[in-house]
Design a protein around this nucleic acid. Structure first.
Lengths: 273, 273
DNA sequence: CGTAAATTTGAGGTGCATCAATTAAAGTGG
DNA sequence: CCACTTTAATTGATGCACCTCAAATTTACG
């Protein structure tokens, strides 16, 4: 049975032929398991029909696929429902800087250059694993926020959280050595995945699905994959971590936290007052 | 004549004995020359009496003085009215990472750890030059936003802008060499100061007041002051900049923009749609 | 005008990059 | 399920951008 397709979807498909519309039934906002962590966290239950109407649909993005490139016209903004997405920027010299690791519940795609409908994304976005996205039309965001202040507050709060993470990455690249900032990154991602308790965390082995390559790690904290490898190997020899076959286990949590100067409270979700 | 002092002020003075209340008359929000760049950008004129009531007062913070330290209970949030403020974090090893340069119109002090009235700042704040601050009670922010959605939207927009700057700093420390990221930083600050056309920009010489020490520059982009000095000296020899006596002149704008991969559009104020 | 703070310059060391080649793992079509 | 191909991980040798330490000089400031 054919699924009816919106204009948004057609625009999207035009640019990204690999994006697939989900089969019915799609997750309703009212039944969304990650809602309390996501954009609509502050919206009361009785209003959720309205958020549902704002949302365009859910889409599947296969692993390694690009969602958008820097400069693409920003038709849509996204909440990641399931999977892993990276936001990044490519420099003139060809080097890549990963700006953010997007995990389920995170909102992204709202950072643009320019104004109005023709504004372009400031960065690129790519899936690390097969991912499910909730897609919203960007041009309606402002009017939606004016109607529903909770949405704006939620956005400001999530922005604050993202900002904190970004600042910690800045500290990592600016003022920590390779060992310290790798320890921090591994712990940060481990805690963020474990916090949501649904997406690849295995309680039995205290491990998570970890789809980053060593090159991804390097591009996040400003190192070459060669040097990342040396540090990771050393940490494995010291029995601080196990990082194999796309799975990460933290063995020496205490020690790693000291090395990376990591404290879970630093990356806890933020609230405005 | 004694100025009546609010509870907020007393709390503030208790912790920061060097903060001085401005003499009357203080700038009214309705007459504020930087309002359109600041937190209340979206608030219609007829509502400004209300923003005025939200604001506690304006205060003076002398040069080099600390406004708050990391971990201090966050009673207040701030808009910088005039001056330069840096937000920073000190690591265990004593190194300092500057997270943000706050210029007039910028909003800060809302990033906290924890919830409720006892939450603490995630970072420290310090004035580089004598600065004037608009102070707001943090605990009323949420209710204010619920009453006035434009405030939440403004906050989200400013957050987006700050995030973009932070990401560019991340790119600088992570994926650029000393020369490139110094060029970027100088241009960024130069453009941001010139954009507001009021605060130390001298049209005749195309120069700005530039209160950073070479150590400040280094702590912003992850270099030692020694190495910053060598790069700056080289740039002066090449007649790309003049950076003396707390004043910065850009001589080779084109070349510098190429070196730093800087484009003014990247740091233009952001709007949601 | 004296003292502290910031800048400047030199010499020597190191953490990470670069280049290069091998091995292991993951993906793909038959 | 296996051969084939591609991608990622691993290891070694060498180099350089930036750090560290240290001392001289200039500038800011009470």
């Amino acid at each position: 049975m054919a699924i009816p397709q919106s204009d948004e979807f057609n625009i999207l498909m035009n640019k990204r032929p690999n994006l697939q519309q989900c089969a019915d039934p799609q997750t309703e906002c009212i039944a969304c398991p990650i809602r309390k962590m996501a954009l609509f966290r502050g919206v009361p239950e009785e209003e959720l029909g309205w958020t549902q109407e704002f949302r365009d649909a859910q889409y599947l993005l296969p692993a390694r696929e690009t969602l958008y490139r820097e400069g693409d016209i920003a038709h849509s903004i996204y909440t990641l429902f399931d999977g892993w997405v990276i936001l990044f920027k490519i420099l003139d010299n060809g080097k890549r800087q990963i700006l953010r690791f997007v995990l389920p519940g995170d909102f992204f795609g709202f950072q643009v250059n320019g104004t109005g409908a023709g504004a372009g994304y400031t960065h690129g976005a790519q899936a690390l694993v097969g991912s499910t996205l909730c897609v919203f039309p960007r041009t309606r965001l402002r009017s939606m926020m004016e109607k529903q202040p909770q949405l704006a507050i939620g956005l400001a709060e999530m922005g604050m959280h993202d900002m904190t993470l970004c600042q910690h990455h800045l500290i990592g690249t600016g003022r920590k050595n390779a060992r310290e900032s790798i320890a921090f990154l591994l712990l940060e991602l481990f805690y963020r995945v474990r916090m949501q308790m649904q997406n690849g965390f295995d309680e039995a082995t205290d491990s998570i699905i970890f789809p980053l390559t060593q090159e991804d790690i390097g591009d996040a904290i400003g190192l070459t994959s060669v040097h990342v490898n040396r540090v990771l190997k050393e940490m494995e020899r010291e029995e601080l971590i196990r990082c194999q076959r796309k799975r990460l286990t933290i063995l020496g949590e205490e020690t790693l936290m000291e090395i990376g100067q990591f404290d879970p409270g630093m990356i806890a979700p933020k609230e405005l007052v």
